[in-house]
């Protein structure tokens, strides 16, 4: 019987999990720091949850408030840098993406993560006019997850080629690519009719064709390209200065300058 593979998440899974294994959680601490408290008070109306996780203040917001909250954080709380922005795919579980913005306050040396849940297919407002770093980050998010961003100046694929199909960081996208990805370079360079000639990709890292004289030549047993495999030693000379003699005792003297 063929093994069942869930289609909504094709990433690697643990092959064995103990029945009694309880996953602990990283402690979420209530906000106590004075600076963080002032931040929470500044955006109190728009946040749904706030806590401190490993030194970072995490603010949960609604997706439609993202521009407003980030504007308040930038203009009132001094979070002048958006160091990172991206998404996490929760489509299999909740049919939602989790988006996060990682902000930095340079004067206080504090970091805030603004988190929101965005429904599949919905679009998010661009924060490019607040933080220019969002220009590339939002394009990357669009490229990797297919999340549309409203009012972005140039929303186009950034990392994958323009004619690429699929969004690679979705959980439904396999690590080794789909059918389109596996033939991409052949189709692009030679055309589809050369697929048979060039052949499929070898994705098995342990595959060795010992008698393949087109790809491998055994040193000391070389045959001409494509000729049948032979066990007879060939008389090709390799000069001794080139091949390292491992039986020779190494000299102990080191370079003085080291």
């Amino acid at each position: 019987m063929r093994k069942y593979v869930p289609k909504d998440n094709v990433q690697k899974k643990a092959y064995y999990t103990d029945r009694f294994h309880v996953v602990p959680r990283v402690p979420r601490v209530a906000v106590e720091d004075a600076h963080f408290l002032s931040v929470v008070n500044a955006v109190k109306a728009d946040i749904t949850d706030s806590y401190v996780e490993i030194g970072t203040l995490v603010l949960h917001i609604k997706p439609e408030d993202n521009f407003k909250v980030l504007q308040v954080l930038k203009e009132q709380c001094g979070y002048t840098q958006c160091s990172e922005q991206s998404a996490v795919d929760y489509l299999a579980k909740d049919n939602e993406f989790e988006l996060f913005w990682q902000l930095l306050n340079v004067t206080e040396a504090k970091r805030v993560r603004v988190v929101c849940r965005l429904a599949n297919g919905a679009a998010i407002e661009s924060v490019e006019s607040l933080f220019k770093s969002a220009n590339f980050a939002e394009r990357e998010m669009f490229d990797m997850f297919g999340i549309k961003v409203n009012n972005h100046p140039f929303l186009k694929r950034i990392i994958m080629p323009d004619d690429w199909e699929g969004h690679p960081l979705l959980k439904t996208y396999p690590l080794q690519g789909d059918e389109f990805a596996s033939w991409y370079e052949v189709d692009k360079i030679f055309g589809k009719e050369y697929r048979d000639i060039i052949g499929p990709e070898n994705r098995d890292p342990s595959k060795i064709e010992r008698e393949d004289t087109k790809r491998f030549s055994r040193v000391g047993y070389e045959v001409p390209f494509g000729a049948p495999y032979s066990e007879e030693q060939t008389d090709i000379e390799y000069s001794e200065t080139v091949l390292v003699d491992y039986n020779k005792k190494p000299s102990k003297t080191l370079d003085k300058r080291r």
Binding site: L175, Q176, I198, N202, R203, P205
Partner: peptide, 16 residues
């Protein structure tokens, strides 16, 4: 393709 056995890497330049 080496350690990058992924969607984005050409699995050996001898393909092209």
């Amino acid at each position: 393709g080496g350690m990058f056995n992924t969607y984005a890497t050409v699995q050996g330049v001898d393909r092209i």
